[in-house]
Amino acid sequence: MKIKSMWPVCVLLILVTLVGFAWAKSHVSGPEQMIVGTWSEQSWEYEKVSTPADKQRLKDRDTIAQSVKDQLGKHLMIHSAETWKFHPDGTLTLEGPHTVKVIRWKLKGRGHILELEHRDHTVEHYNLTALTNEQMILNFDSDMQVKGIAKLTFHR
């Protein structure tokens, strides 16, 4: 087949692909829209543990004890937040039992990384493992004594 006759085929294929992709994308809600709203913290869990003793301890009690959570939270800016309010303008209100904090949020990658930027320009990254209309799951790595990947679960 000569190149001249190939051009229309190539252009048509590209156009069909682009239109199909745009059509499909317009029918799917993106994480930037889905995350907006109020989320209440439900649980902190460990998905991976370093020692069998930790595993047994966590098996006995599914969620992390408040003391452990507080200890972990010393290294995390959001530890005291129980309600997260994501606003469409890119701000996030963290409401704890005693404090209210406003920071900025962004999604990176293919929408699977949540970046939180504090006023002092400290940046935290969380893996947005699951995001549906009812549930949001964030993961973060902890290098503390209790090593593993912590999971934060939120509900609307």
């Binding site: 992709f21 499909a24 799917v28 809600s29 993106g30 293919r110 929408g111 699977h112 995001l131």
Partner: peptide, 14 residues
């Protein structure tokens, strides 16, 4: 069932 990410990945691979 995260079709948004499915589409993104398809787009990048394409």
């Amino acid at each position: 069932g995260d079709y948004y990410q499915v589409l993104m990945v398809i787009g990048w691979i394409f």
